[in-house]
Nucleic acid binder design. Structure first.
Lengths: 235, 235
DNA sequence: TTTGTGTAAATTGTAGACAATATGTATTTT
DNA sequence: AAAATACATATTGTCTACAATTTACACAAA
């Protein structure tokens, strides 16, 4: 009863990341240490270690004597996202095509297969997480520890934003997902061929598709921003 | 005053960052929890929280059941650094010129004043930390949470690499430092004027200066890479 | 009614002790 | 003598309990 799981602590870490990415834990909400510790069947010290690591990775924000808050998303967040995304996505795709290993490309193919399966089955959360995983592997391929932190941060919020705008009744979104899935296949092919320039170009196109989708919803409706219950706004 | 001292825990966090940046704790060395806890006069749980946060920020690497290791620097590290630095430095400088506040510009001036003072006094560690602080404030000015993680990571290793190559007997380095200090003044002026393009351009020039310095030493001599030892041999 | 203060409850921060795991050494066996 | 295993030791991981800080509420005074 010890080896099969990768220790309860790392399971807790992974699950909290997942819940934040899927917006099961919404941006801005405050986390209760005792509640989480009980839920994951660990005591508070290791849970606090997990929260501290998540703080370093910018999944959560720590407030002194006030606990942990899921990293909020503001209006400015979206603007900054639009500035940083194309640059980093293109750079990472270029490096991925240059440095990808055989095993990594195999991983990518496996994920893509499961990704298409999730699309067919209409499993939104699973599809979103697999999309995140797909792009995370591309980030690993780039193998650059200086681009990785921002790339990971981008993926966190790209995933969260994607979850915000999901609407099963919008047929256009289904169409766009089909295009996105095809682009994933193109990514695999270009990376396998080592075509760095084309991969960077495709990354921009892939981003533009996503951006158009986000803008369609963000402009008229506005971004839903749960605030949590912070007593006084800083600054 | 409500917070005259910044709690022993955050003091520990800051000091460990400083010691890693100045290579007082060299890349690759393993950290002893009990030893550090005693040194900072706190118990192991809060120290472990600090180490977990540093792991999230990529100052250290956590090994299961083997403690924390100061983030190593390899040969590949330097190559990746050269790829990422110009892109991010330029982007951040551009955004800093667009978004800087009056207070931040005042901070920058204050730091620059102390920076020149440290140069005159030949205080290497202080100069290096103030240089790091100067560029960290520019990062804050850019105010983009997606670029910030990689930018911070870059600054960590730029500072560590700079500490590696310091050589007080090399007159050329003194000359280059004078140029760098003048460029800092240019940064302040351009940011104050809101000239984003010129600031981005200057960032590239500033980087090229630093790159030339690094290459001069890295190419003939090779990078000194302490490997560290498993927790036993130290002391 | 409003505002200020004091006390109580709840939550976060810390400490010390204990359990689990890995490493090093010594002894035994081939 | 060399290798493998078992034991001893050291270090990491976790838990329970306690201290400190903050928040909420009640009550009193203006």
């Amino acid at each position: 009863m010890k080896q099969p799981v990768k220790t309860k602590k790392s399971a807790c870490l992974d699950d909290l990341r997942r819940r934040i990415l899927t917006q099961d834990l919404e941006p801005g909400v405050y986390l209760d240490e005792m509640q989480l510790a009980e839920a994951y069947d660990i005591s508070r010290p290791p849970l606090r270690e997990v929260l501290n690591q998540l703080a370093g990775e910018e999944y959560v924000l720590l407030h002194k004597n006030r606990g942990a808050q899921v990293m909020p998303m503001t209006h400015k967040t979206l603007r900054n996202f639009f500035v940083a995304a194309p640059m980093l996505y293109a750079a990472v795709a270029r490096l991925a095509a240059e440095h990808a290993s055989r095993d990594q490309i195999a991983d990518l193919r496996a994920i893509q297969s499961r990704f298409r399966c999730a699309i067919e089955q209409g499993d939104t959360a699973e599809r979103t997480l697999l999309n995140q995983h797909f792009h995370a592997v591309i980030g690993d391929m780039a193998d650059n520890e200086y681009l990785a932190p921002s790339y990971r941060r981008l993926l966190i919020d790209h995933t969260r934003i994607g979850m915000s705008f999901y609407n099963p009744r919008n047929a256009a979104l289904g169409e766009q997902r089909a295009i996105a899935a095809d682009q994933h296949d193109d990514f695999i092919r270009l990376i396998d061929a080592g075509d760095a320039e084309a991969a960077a170009h495709l990354a921009v196109a892939h981003w533009e598709l996503s951006r158009a989708e986000i803008e369609n919803f963000a402009t008229p409706v506005g971004l839903h921003i749960p605030l949590g219950h912070a007593p006084n706004g800083s600054r």
